[in-house]
Design a protein around this nucleic acid. Sequence first.
DNA 1: GTCTATATTCTGATAGAC
DNA 2: GTCTATCAGAATATAGAC
Lengths: 191, 191
Amino acid sequence: MPRVTGTKKAILEAALQLAATKGITGTTMDEVAELAGVAKGSVYYNFTNKDQLFEELMEQGVGALAEVLREARSGLHGWSAIEALVDTLLGRIQENSALAKLMAAEMFRTDRAWQKTLFALRHEALGEFAAAIAESAPAAKNNGTSELMASSVFGAVLMGGLEWLVFEPERSREEVAATILQALGGQLRPA
Amino acid sequence: MPRVTGTKKAILEAALQLAATKGITGTTMDEVAELAGVAKGSVYYNFTNKDQLFEELMEQGVGALAEVLREARSGLHGWSAIEALVDTLLGRIQENSALAKLMAAEMFRTDRAWQKTLFALRHEALGEFAAAIAESAPAAKNNGTSELMASSVFGAVLMGGLEWLVFEPERSREEVAATILQALGGQLRPA
DNA sequence: GTCTATATTCTGATAGAC
DNA sequence: GTCTATCAGAATATAGAC
């Protein structure tokens, strides 16, 4: 994947920022062009149509996330791997909250043109969590619930992270990471 | 809150089903009218405009959820209360997956006309989780992270529940509830 | 209360000059 | 590669008959 620069990059960035607050359907190509500082014709020169623009956006974003998670887990095992994944995911949510909002909104949509592409990348990103969970909780591995549990853990970090950034931004990242890990680490259940 | 019946009810139900798959912005008033089996004029007779229709929809849905959670927790404490809340929320997600999808998509939008209304109800629903968590994890209560932890737990159930309904519908509800509770109950962390 | 018909605005997309 | 101008269709909302 060659890195995107120049006009194309500006358009993708503008589209991401707009879609994070207004949603994809609520974002118009006119707005994208204006925020990117180019004419609408240039948007259509770089992307076939609106669907293709947002497909490429999601593909790049989720693809990069999956790669970062893979690196974060490499060499680690069990609870340490889960800690690293949670911390890394939270970091990505902080640095790219626009993409996080977009993912939360799009993750369970089943009517998109790019559904298949997104599903594959989603599966890849969740797979990192599932693998770490299978190591840490053998019971989950045996009855095949690793992926389901991975979704729960991912959801905990995503919702917790967005709660932080949107409603309690005064907290430190360390505090938020620790809080989420406590919720997942059995602190809720008495010994 | 008087229960809504007849035409108004049909319109709200149609709007919910459509918005669950196409999103609110992607749902047109023509489609709502058609699915509800009424003319568009009747939609505008019952609701001032599109925003007001969906505000009422979200208000009813999230309000009912908050009430159900309150009942589920009453009389219970500590981990038992959390178990009951998780199980009840999962049940609501199963029975009303359309609303669950809508909530996931709308929860962190900050540009909606009805943002304030939704925020208050969201806070109310999360408050049930936060209260149970404050009892169960005194540390969270002391440093004021109960609400943040509540968001994480809510996110775990919501994402886990939707993963189940959208991607692994062959599983039983009991199995899903147990899996999510394991993730939250410290099964991931070695003793 | 419900309908049909219509006004008006918005939006995705294209054509063609530079 | 980028721009301006423009079209065709869609979407919100209203008016007025029944």
